[in-house]
Design a binder for these strands. Sequence first.
DNA 1: AGAGAGTCTATTTTT
DNA 2: TAGACTCTCT
Length: 728
Amino acid sequence: MDVSHLLQDLNDAQRAAVTLEGGHALILAGAGSGKTRVLIHRLAWLIQVNHVSPLGILAVTFTNKAAGEMRSRAGTLLQMSPRPLWIGTFHGIAHRLLRMHWKEARLPESFQILDSEDQQRLLRRIIREEGLDDTHWPAKQAQWFINARKDEGERPRHIEHLDHPATATWAHIYQRYEDYCNRGGLVDFAEILLRAHELWLEQPAVLDHYRRRLQYLLIDEFQDTNAIQYAWLRMLAGDTGSMFVVGDDDQSIYGWRGARVENVQSFVRDFPAVATIRLEQNYRSTGTILAAANGVIANNQGRMGKKLWTDGPDGTPINLYSAFNEQDEARFVVEQIRQWLDQGRRADEVAILYRTTAQSRLFEEYLLRAGIAYRVYGGQRFFERVEVKDALAYLRLVLNPNDDAALERVINKPARAIGDKTVSILRLQAREANVSLWQAAQACIRQKLIPPRASAAVQEFIDLASGMQERVQNWTLGNQMQAVIDESKLATHYGKEPRERMETRIENLRELVNAADAFILPNEDADAGLTELQSFLSHASLEAGETQGESWDDCVQLMTLHSAKGLEFPVVFMAGMEDGLFPHQRSVEESGGRLEEERRLCYVGMTRARKQLCLSYAETRRMHGAESMSRPSRFIDEIPADLLQEIRPRLAANRPYVSARPAAAAKPPTFKNQEWPFKLGQRVLHHKFGEGTVLAFEGSGEHTRVQINFAKAGSKWLVLAYAKLEAR
DNA sequence: AGAGAGTCTATTTTT
DNA sequence: TAGACTCTCT
């Protein structure tokens, strides 16, 4: 067979990686070095050259998006259906294992997945139920504690230092939470991984089956694996499996949620004869951008070592803008984008990256005002919307009435006179008898433990749910969804909200029915023995859907530095480059390599840019309602100075104090007071805001601002130099 | 049950 | 400062 297509267009290092003979491999793949390409070509190489059965390969990624891309690219390259390949996220694959081996994993067949919101609600309830004060014991922290333990593979019984009172309490909450989950057949995200690990630990026969079958393991973004994921991989590989691991220690930015860069080093230690290959040639950025990024990351200790290079052009210098405040920064960035667009370039070639989500707001404001289309990454996803989750909760009850999380969510939604009082009696009963709320509810009615009125209401709810269960059983998913929404009368619940809010909710429910209608049971889920309903619900939790269904085309991209990982843009703005914001204060204060992680984040951000990179910072920023001054990010100092070019506006905004920084560029001509082109009270015309009256001037020289009362837009302060006012 | 007042908190996010 | 959240009162 001709396999030249597998090696064409690969550089030497890439080729070496793809064609490695057996054994284990660590591919240290720098940003933009063709990492995904190597992974996919390796996969194809195994099949087409080494004649490995597609069934013998497991490829693991972190996000559904990455898994999807890998699947489709593999299909294209191999010219075959990627169906038999096991490609998926850690969670997706672990989930599949649990579905196939629910008995061995000691789970009920219809176990449900709790997303983090469900988990947090459940925890809040447990904490209150335990009589703990939830200001001292916040659910969020409990969630953090439990997930961190699970990520380390620890059950409550494993937790030591029970003599430490706080830890003892958290462990106790963990235990109670576990009881709840087991009772209702509920599994959170961390639990999926932990269970899958325990499944193999406790069922040698199952492990043996998969060890024999999956001999070739390809892992993407290895630097993001946590302890349990690594343990799971090691277990699967055993002594015979072959690991092909791709990652970049310099792009490890998820330490705060349990990722262990050390796994990269451990890998080399734990597996024999690991071949290490570095991919350092970069196909994305200009020489200048790479030199700058290299300069920054070089300040980190204990790296595996890697230096990106390109045989492309050096490109333009990195721009640096020192803004007076955050408003000025946003104004500047948007104006730069305007200029870019005026050159006839596309908006979707531009990204604005920032450290914290809150920073997006100002940019949105200014973009909106400038009439430039934009898209903000992150935010609420479809299957996480309240109304969608409410409707799904009913569906979950249809599948498994013991799902306490679902029952609690909707038992009084819409209001059916089942108040807190009643529900807490149910909880108490459930806890005492160690049964689910559903069972407890029936017991309470039978034993007359709740007053007659409430009892009737609860009975009504039980009838509703079991009625749904019976009737809906053999219907199509879409009809089930519709029936559940109709019969629950959820719409009446939202009916009381403001009109606009209500309409979107109803619209989303309609969309949910459409999604159910359009849902096709994936083959792998069918193979795992899932019903359509089970599969749909699992999908809703494991891939909560796109953030926004909005159009994707030709918008300026706004996102945090974290969510920019893996993406690239011709033009990148990194905003808020201030010490305290980036690196974030919390990371500076905390020990444990947090600062180095911030530096890696900076490295990730910079290497997103293909042609142009522009950094900006504000000397003063309004945060949490207070004005604060800060100095430029230390990361800026780490960029070789000759690569930076400071951008000065023709006229800067008003500065209340003199910057200590030396001005790099010569100052452009400035206005003097006498040269004000307008008089107070004069009528002026603005291209956007229309006609108005000059109310005041502020500042002088290049800082001159002018206040104008516009007939339509109201009163505004504008920087004179930018306002382009016309006298009337 | 719902409005309105008061309180608290503010890093990053996927599954 | 603003938004989410809780509590209180009707």
